[in-house]
Design a protein around this nucleic acid. Structure first.
Lengths: 144, 144
DNA sequence: ATAACTGTAACAAGTATAGTTACAATAGGC
DNA sequence: GCCTATTGTAACTATACTTGTTACAGTTAT
């Protein structure tokens, strides 16, 4: 399967919106930078809009812009907006309840899953969109 | 797609092996507890064997056993043995190199990816197979 | 009115997982 | 040595998710 790269694309999109400030950005313009189809971009923008991270306008000279300044956009919110938030899945089938291990392992795995997912959320919580922009600036300055 | 539950199954398998001690466990016996097909179990056992976490014997009265005592088996090793180790993927297509953001975002996303993956590894490093067994014991005692 | 956007449905292609059958290779028990 | 049990692995199916694409209805500036 194509690995899920929606979070990476979402960060790229938000970085573009942040640098554009108040101006609306068209999905077509974004698609050129991300190097994909505008519909793919609009799908991700739809998820970001549901999370109240961006706002869009339809019609001529429409487009999308950030709702909040980059310092107030945390990557945790971006991650939650575009992913299921689970690093690993629990088995689809229930374990054998006649086996002592099968009976009790599910709760253990579920707690483990929550612990891992929480640590990812905490780490992402350390980054804001503004900090991403800072990393971009450093990179482009170094390259110039 | 069926979500990847190999890590969860691997932990379940290793818990069974740990409780069985020195004795070889057959893939069929394990499959009954996990509630799946023996071949699915053998596939995971193969990955765990490549990571030197378990050893198998072919032939009659063959089976699989742990290489190390449960205290020395860390869940990081299990995770690395059965997964790609990446919480999110980078886009398959390269971003537009003619765009300043496209040109520099990839390195930022790559560093971000490494930071997140590292935090997952660190959190998993806090758990050993023995600690999983401890959680199982607590659960089954509470249920009894 | 017209032209330019978004939102979204529908579909194809590619790919990963889980499950299943089948069978060669191997090793213990008699 | 022969039989039997078990692993390792290939091959195939079904399912489902992601990306990419076309198409089009709805909306808005000019």
């Amino acid at each position: 399967m194509a690995a899920n790269s929606q979070f990476a694309m979402a960060v790229h999109i938000l970085a573009l919106l942040a640098l554009k400030g108040e101006t609306n950005l068209k999905s077509d313009t974004i698609a050129q930078s991300v190097n994909t189809n505008p519909v793919v971009i609009r799908r991700i923008l739809g998820q970001l809009a549901s999370a109240h991270l961006v706002e869009s306008q339809t019609g001529a000279s429409g487009g999308t812009r950030l709702v909040l300044p980059p310092e107030k956009v945390c990557l945790v919110e971006v991650y939650k907006a575009v992913s299921c938030g689970e690093v690993f899945a629990l088995p689809a089938k229930q374990a054998n309840q006649d086996c002592p291990v099968g009976r009790s392992i599910e709760a253990v795995l579920c707690n483990l899953q929550k612990a891992i997912d929480r640590s990812v959320a905490e780490k992402l919580g350390e980054f804001s969109l503004a900090s991403v922009l800072g990393m971009i600036d450093i990179e482009s300055t170094a390259a110039a």
